[in-house]
Design a protein around this nucleic acid. Structure first.
Lengths: 222, 222
DNA sequence: TTGTGTGAATCGATTCACAGCC
DNA sequence: GGCTGTGAATCGATTCACACAA
């Protein structure tokens, strides 16, 4: 018996689970109730062997000779990712990007709720944005609400002290949009999203083509 | 003999070069003119052996017993990434995120220039944003300017047809912020940035902690 | 003596290929 | 007969450890 193999899903697999969940959602909307690994892999942009291996880490949820039940597999992946509960999020830094994220609807779609907005600029403090009043992180730490995930959309120069403050108030998951490295204590997870990095990687490949490198291989890192 | 090893820098290395470039910039601003692999690795958040191996793919630019020249190494990495020329960028989809990116200054910092803004919404077409008039992609394709890189910030439902139009007009590098898989011809590079995916990965680790998994290992994937 | 550059060793992730089950 | 689940094989990326250059 498969023994769901709790603890120890490879990081690379965790990184693909959200894509499977999205693909399953789309297939479900089309009315599909069952998919083969071949079909789901195509919808998620991976190879079928990879999909099956990934899913095998969650346990056995497919039926041999048939495929996977769309609803059941969605639920299983959502459970594994921790999306059955709602995670409270604070956005720190309400410049253009912070405001765009605050207004982003898809946020709430799945397990996440923006419960606080933070900034230090007196011109922004007290403003109401998307139904939330902008406060200082110190105020939020002192009087609630509790947050699990911090999203940093400040300039790079402020990001480290924001991270320190978030850690101080107990946040152990940070999504950093500022173009800088954050140093955090052991056990705190940071993920970085950096526009400049992404563009520079594209520029590299663009230049390779210009240099006449044959790299005509398939497609890409989506 | 080192033989710069043109062609065939591992993808993982390419993905770290932008980080080295940023770290070198910071060190340079502090007045440093020379760094050891140990110092630069610390500033970029990698191990020194990894840094040396990565740099070895670009050729030999360090001096044994001394380290690397900050200016020279920056220039070499920038050249390798193709940042010595300016890449023209179009942003497609001027919702909150598209506008935030259009206003983002750091964009121009290094080798990228937003030369066009595209949308299909009549309410947005013709508006001037950040000094550029919003036009249709078709208009841009027909009357210029030429673009190398397309940034998609439309809703997911529109992303595929935008990608098709970009490919049609000769764009072969796409940065996709829409939460969906794009299908593109061989040779076109797509990179995906997805807020939901990042949050879901954080949620996974957050839940693992809640379940009492020991995963107290260091830090993370920045 | 110091710190780079790099083969060799290790580690992890992907793919293959097929046994097992429906 | 068809498709999952998974060991075995492969591939690539990271780390080790040290020869070698300054």
């Amino acid at each position: 018996m498969p023994e769901p193999n709790r603890r120890g899903i490879p990081e690379a697999t965790v990184g693909r689970l959200p894509g499977y969940l999205r693909a399953l959602g789309e297939l479900g909307e089309k009315g599909l109730t069952s998919v083969s690994s071949e079909e789901l892999a195509a919808a998620a942009g991976v190879r079928s062997a990879q999909l099956r291996k990934d899913l095998s880490y969650l346990g056995s949820y497919g039926v041999r000779g048939v495929g996977y039940d769309v609803v059941q597999l969605s639920a299983q992946i959502a459970r594994e990712l921790g999306l059955t509960q709602e995670w409270p999020v604070v956005i720190v830094g309400l410049g253009n990007l912070g405001r765009a994220l605050a207004a982003y609807r898809g946020f709430a779609t799945r397990g996440f709720r923006i419960v606080a907005l933070a900034d230090t600029d007196p011109a922004v403090l007290g403003q109401e944005i998307e139904g939330l009043v902008v406060r200082t992180l110190q105020d939020i730490a002192a009087t609630g609400p509790r947050v699990s995930i911090g999203v940093i959309t400040t300039p790079a120069a402020a990001a480290q002290e924001v991270a320190d403050a978030l850690v101080e108030m107990g946040v152990r998951s940070i999504l950093n949009f500022a173009p800088c490295l954050l140093s955090v204590p052991e056990g705190v997870h940071v993920r970085k999203v950096d526009l400049a990095t992404e563009l520079q990687i594209l520029a590299y490949h663009e230049q390779q083509r210009a240099l006449g490198v044959t790299g005509g291989e398939a497609v890409v890192a989506q």
